[in-house]
Write a protein that binds this DNA or RNA. Structure first.
Lengths: 324, 324
DNA sequence: CTGTTAGCGCATTCAT
DNA sequence: ATGAATGCGCTAACAG
């Protein structure tokens, strides 16, 4: 069923049918409009997105570049982005960059060739400013959650400063005044900002900064090593849930009891964090709000001015020492 | 840069350029071919996928329908599918069905309207046979991991019988001859098959069948309740990691020690299972192989005959009672 | 307010 | 082996 079929059936021209289907760009007499709508319904007409794309240079498809969909944090974000996009009648192309700058560029390249209307990039640290490359090709792009060092494109992230302060304040209420901070090896962007907030908050104390890869394995290994050396801090804030879960595994293996001998709070708040043993106290990232903001930025070309970041909310469970 | 530009630059016709770009369907003189290739390179020509799609009725885009990307099992599968598709130069559209048959149909509808070349459906139990609907519209579709009751379309899944037998045999080596089985409320397709395999294996004993939703919360609640009633079996095989993690959380809350008082093996084997406390012994699903098989089925229209299912491999960790 | 028409970039058939 | 010409389905400029 094509436009032409509908036009014939409604006794109208293809132009008019097009105007009706798109609510514009020109007015149509209400009566004609009804006839067209009726014909379209009877014929079960579905506009051909491909033809429309060829003609109008917009595809209704957005590209979502992800570091790794198997990581539940990225997966959750992906789900929210897809939903937010769906509500705006956009389709979502997905691509995994796998923590490699090369692969990320490659994915972006492919998306650009597919004529995506915009790019949402949820990526690991480092690499070139792919958003800038996309914008150079006329395709708007936003970073979500993180961005490469050099980027000037908009980033959508939670209010990380507040999240860190909330976590630290809560630990203080448990009597820990010098919580350590576990971050990645090369933290820049929002994650670096978390570390920075922590540094500001603990300045003057001898709280310790810990670093390891953003993986469960690395965090587990670190925890076991430090515990063996009797050098594990009594309270730790981790930059990511993956690391927190690794710390939990390492503590378990080393016979270190959480929360009795180690109080732990993580800053991601993925669904995973609720079912660890013990359950993790976290500051939950407002993923849905972030996804919506990103979509708004891309589609409405919303003000790129410093909108206040969405707040992360402290979810108290057991790893901090609360009995909940 | 369009075909026409390249043709002009190479002093050839658009037809010839097209033949060169697609290696057919007609032969081109080697010399002309070189000239065209050179011109294309100099002009940095990139074929317009949209125009090609309009003309050829194939888009190079596949639709991936997922129950929930934030679930790491589905997320991992998504990553492998995207990779396998990428290797065949296909793009991946993603859509979340959110365990709702309505939403699933809606997603499929949208994908069909976008002219996807094929559909990969990784979905929850129940609902109508969307693959059949797609095939009726001329779009090939495969189910992966699970399928609705009524479906006749091909399913790609692991060898679930073998997985169950491996799990049971391992538990038997720990002295448990009557392991219980925890499955979903309406298990059909491959998951139902797992239960069926278990039923066959424990026939004649009074091993117990447990059911709850495929969520951590439901499994945790069930475990706490059974433990309180002193009715928790000493050895359990769970159909999914989500449920196993929930059992772990419930056991922890109820003061039940794993593996001492409860031996546990799960049948999914997501990355998550490696960093629980204690680490889960699982039969790991061959996700990569499943993704590749699905892609092959869709693209090569491979034999839909009963190919042997890929094997799931037992990964021994601690929840079964091993000291690893 | 509505009808006619010209392409968007490409694959392909018909000529040569 | 190659060129010219047609049309995929749609949007929008142009002409009533």
């Amino acid at each position: 069923m094509t436009l032409t079929d509908v036009a014939r059936r409604a006794g109208a021209s293809t132009a008019v049918v097009s105007y009706v289907m798109n609510n514009g760009p020109r007015p149509v007499a209400p009566e004609t409009r009804e006839r067209v709508l009726a014909a379209a319904a009877e014929l079960n007409y579905r506009p051909n997105r491909i033809a429309r794309a060829l003609r109008s240079h917009t595809t209704g498809v957005m590209g979502l570049v992800l570091a790794d969909a198997s990581n539940p944090f990225f997966g959750s974000l992906a789900r929210h982005v897809e939903e937010a996009l769906g509500e705006r009648d956009k389709l979502t192309l997905i691509g995994n960059a796998g923590f490699s700058a090369d692969r990320q560029e490659h994915v972006v390249e492919r998306f650009l060739a597919a004529q995506v209307d915009g790019l949402i990039i949820v990526s690991a640290d480092g690499g070139p400013d792919v958003a800038a490359q996309a914008e150079a090709a006329g395709v708007p792009a936003v970073y979500v959650h993180n961005q490469p060092e050099s980027a000037r494109s908009p980033v959508v992230a939670a209010d990380n400063d507040a999240a860190v302060h909330d976590a630290l304040a809560h630990l203080r209420s448990h009597g820990h005044t010098q919580a350590a901070f576990l971050t990645g090896s090369h933290d820049v962007g929002p994650v670096g900002r978390r570390r920075h907030a922590w540094e500001g908050a603990v300045a003057g104390t001898d709280a310790r900064l810990l670093r390891c890869d953003y993986t469960r394995a690395a965090a587990a290994e670190l925890t076991q090593r430090l515990t063996a050396q009797d050098a594990m801090p009594p309270a730790v804030v981790t930059a990511t849930d993956e690391q927190a879960i690794g710390v939990l595994a390492g503590a378990d293996a080393a016979g270190l009891s959480v929360p009795d001998q180690l109080a732990l709070i993580s800053l991601d708040g993925t669904p995973d964090s609720a079912y660890t043993a013990p359950a993790l106290t976290v500051t939950e990232q407002p993923l849905r709000a972030m996804a919506e903001r990103a979509v708004r930025l891309l589609i409405d070309d919303a003000p790129r001015s410093p909108e206040p970041h969405a707040a992360a909310s402290l979810v108290v469970r057991r790893s901090c020492g609360c009995s909940g």
